[in-house]
Amino acid sequence: MDDVMLITGARKGIGRYLAEYYVQRGYVVEGCSRKAPDWTLEGYTHHCVDVTDEVQVRDMLNNIRKRHGRLDITLNNAGIASMNHAMLTPMSVAQKIISTNFLGTFLMCRESAKLMAKNKFGRIVNFSTIAVPLQLEGEALYASAKSAVETLTRILAREFAELGITSNAIGPTPIPTDLIRAVPQEKMDALIDRLAIRRPGCFEDVSNVVDFFISRASDSVTGQVLYLGGVS
């Protein structure tokens, strides 16, 4: 039976690319985002779900369980960014960033693990950012939320190990998507200068690492955060 994969934030950007990439590779792909996508794909099912809404997330996982009886892989790609000086960051924005990036990831991990535990197999891949190790100015809230995602990833690796579920995270370099649309070019150039591999990230960089994390052979790879671009 084909593996069932769930991708959050699948409407656009990296999420959409991953949905298309894994459908092509024979996975049954389920995805979610708050708004409906303007595209369809055979082998892909979309759910209009806010990852911070517990009832919506549980309903989606229930729906997946009833249709497929299993979930093998969850890619927690959904995220929002707001680049701003800490002193200019409104509380409402701070709460939204923590809620979507961190609590949304937690909720998806928790509910996914319940379904994965049935088969004593699961692969969870969370999304961090190189802004964590680089401690980028202007990303205090975003990087802090992702830092929390990294700690969550490591602790879940231990808590879920007995269930046959691995938990890892990827920290991509900036990829030209909507998430970083508002970042000025000179800031991007300065950031890329700090990488060992001096180029912007691309979608293939991400799927390469995800392929490694979700491989059946990676059953002893857990609690790891892998940064791209030579950042450590």
Partner: peptide
């Protein structure tokens, strides 16, 4: 959930 279509935590 299966028997009653009710979600409880």
């Amino acid at each position: 959930s299966d028997e009653l279509n009710t979600v409880v935590t």
